[in-house]
């Protein structure tokens, strides 16, 4: 118990004094996971729209694959991306292993199926005739897609939350493709693992608290946006 209290005390101290290292790690975590979420949103939404609005052979298989992809283990993605990005590997010429770009890539691979899967379910849960109704009101195809997305905005926000929550809290892929390099690729989760390893439980607890607060505030903002559309 002493350790926890001491940890909490030190954690608060680090946070209240705005420790520059903690700030840097936090900001990088936000940037990496935010960018990965944005990329996943673009990929996931596109996939969801294409699958939801078109009939094609193998559609069920694609949906099954997307749903399976929602549970991609981060370490598997991390290993896969690392092997691809090794400088003697197939994508070695990019030279992005152990950079934030590699982490964004890995996290985007993790989050894209999550966002695609939830968005697809959201679009498929819209009323059956809504698509025809929108077209009957004179919408062009892009206008129709926009209106459908707008109608599904609440579950779509949930998809973004799930995607962001998934990647900001994952450690397996980030540590493998990022390398937890100080000042370059050290993010909240990898730093927490390292500080725990070093026995610096206080710092580890501080970082965990930041991670919690961060995950909580991002979700709070998104939830607020979500609730704003609904009047009592």
């Amino acid at each position: 118990m002493d350790l926890i209290w001491e940890g909490l005390r030190k954690a608060l101290e680090l946070l209240l004094t705005l420790d520059s290292e903690v700030l840097r790690i936090t900001w990088l975590s936000l940037q990496v996971s935010g960018a990965a979420t944005l990329i996943s949103l673009a990929i996931g939404l596109t996939l969801a729209v294409v699958v939801a609005l078109n009939e094609f052979p193998g559609k069920r298989l694609v949906i099954a694959l997307l749903n399976t992809g929602m549970g991609l283990p981060p370490v598997v993605v991390g290993l896969f991306v690392t092997v691809l990005l090794w400088r003697n590997g197939p994508l070695g010429s990019l030279g992005i292993l152990y950079t934030p770009s590699a982490m964004i890539l890995a996290q985007a691979i993790i989050a894209s199926p999550i966002i695609a899967g939830i968005s697809l379910a959201a679009l498929q849960h819209l009323p059956q005739g809504l698509r025809l109704q929108i077209l009957a009101l004179g919408a062009s195809r892009p206008q129709m897609v926009w209106l459908l997305l707008k109608e599904a905005k609440l579950p779509l926000l949930a998809a973004v939350m799930a995607g962001f929550g998934g990647v900001i809290s994952e450690v397996g892929a980030s540590i493998m493709v990022g390398g937890n390099i100080k000042g370059q690729t050290r993010v909240l989760t990898t730093a927490t693992v390292m500080e725990t390893g070093k026995g610096n439980f206080d710092v580890a607890i501080a970082l965990s608290l930041v991670l919690l607060v961060l995950a909580f505030s991002v979700n709070a903002v998104l939830t607020h946006l979500q609730q704003r559309g609904r009047r009592p």
Binding site: Q31, A35, S101, I104, M194, G197
Partner: peptide, 28 residues
Amino acid sequence: TALSSVFLAAAPPAEKILILATTTSTQD
């Protein structure tokens, strides 16, 4: 814009990057 700054963060040229593989004890 905010997020993309992570890419622009002055990536050094490849010949200036050195990968040091080491043990946890030296880092920890």
